[in-house]
Amino acid sequence: MLANKGLPVMPWAWSLLPAHMEFLLLGWLVQLAMGVAYWILPRFSSATPRGDERLIWIALILFNLGIWLVAIVIFIGPGWLTVTGRAAEALGVASFTLGVWRRIKPSGA
C-alpha cells in the first residue's frame, strides 16, 4: 500500500489504509504495550503472581477479534461490523484493565 503511493499500479491498495492503521496502531503498538505490561508489572506473592490470567486471555481474544472485524469491514461491508469490532476491542481493554488493576502497586507490597 505504501509502495503504491509512489508507483500507483494497484489503485485498490488505498482501500487497505484503515486495515494498515488498525494493524499498526492497535495490533502492534497497543498490543505490545499490553503484553509487556502484563509481563513486567509488579506481581503478587501468591499462587497466582500475575492475578487472574483468565481476564488477560479474554482480553487477548476480544482485542484481536475486534482488530480483525474492523480490518475486514472494507472487504465484506456491513457497517455494524465496525461497531462490533470496536466494542470487542473496548471490552478486551476493559478485561485487561481489570486483570492488571491491582498490580499497579509498589513492588513487594
Binding site: L2, A3, K5, G6, L7, P8
Partner: peptide
C-alpha cells in the same frame, strides 16, 4: 519523498517511496 511527490510528482520520488516502503 512524500512531500516531493505530493508537490512535484515525478517518477524518481515515486520510486523512492517504493524503496522506502520495502
Amino acid at each position: 519523498a512524500e512531500p516531493l511527490q505530493t508537490n512535484q510528482p515525478a517518477p524518481l520520488w515515486g520510486w523512492l517511496l517504493v524503496i522506502s516502503a520495502v
